[in-house]
Amino acid sequence: MALRLIFAILALVTTFSITLASDPSPLQDFCVADRMSAVFVNGFVCKDPKLATANDFFFPGLDKPGNTMNPMGSAVTPVNVAQIAGLNTLGISLARIGFAPNGLNPPHTHPRATEILVVLEGTLSVGFVTSNPDNKLFAKILQKGDVFVFPEGLIHFQFNNGLVPAVALAGLSSQNPGVITIANAVFGSKPPISDDILAKAFMLDKKTVDWLQSQFWGSYP
Rank of each mutant, 00 (worst) to 15 (best):
R112D: 12
V126L: 02
V129W: 15
G127N: 04
L51M: 08
T123H: 02
F58I: 04
V45I: 14
V41H: 04
P106D: 14
P111S: 11
I97D: 01
P107E: 12
K47Y: 03
L94S: 11
K140H: 12
L137K: 12
A82H: 15
V13P: 04
K144Y: 13
F16W: 06
L87C: 07
S25G: 10
I92S: 02
E115K: 00
G61C: 00
D48E: 06
T109Q: 13
T109R: 10
L142I: 00
L104T: 08
P26T: 07
D56M: 02
N67I: 04
A100K: 13
P71L: 00
S93A: 09
H108A: 11
G145M: 11
T19F: 12
V149Q: 02
N105W: 08
H110T: 13
L104Y: 11
A11I: 06
K140W: 15
V13T: 00
Q83H: 11
K144I: 06
A139L: 11
N70V: 04
N105G: 03
G98E: 07
L87N: 11
I84P: 08
M69T: 09
L12E: 03
M69H: 15
S25V: 05
P101M: 07
N105F: 04
G86C: 07
G61F: 00
N105E: 14
A52S: 11
P24A: 01
P111Y: 13
A113L: 06
V41W: 05
G145S: 11
I18P: 00
S74Q: 03
T77S: 06
V41P: 03
P133V: 01
G61T: 14
S25I: 04
I141M: 13
P106A: 02
A95Q: 09
A75N: 03
Q143V: 03
A54W: 10
N88R: 01
N42T: 14
D34W: 00
G127Y: 10
L124K: 07
N105T: 00
L27C: 06
F58P: 06
T89I: 01
F128T: 02
D63K: 05
F59E: 05
K64T: 15
V79W: 00
K64H: 07
C31R: 03
F30N: 07
V32N: 02
A21E: 08
S125V: 14
A139P: 06
D34H: 07
G127S: 08
L104A: 14
V118D: 05
I9N: 02
R112M: 05
G98P: 01
N88S: 10
P49H: 06
G61M: 00
V129P: 05
T89A: 09
R112A: 05
P111M: 12
L62I: 14
C46F: 14
L12Y: 10
S25L: 09
A21M: 05
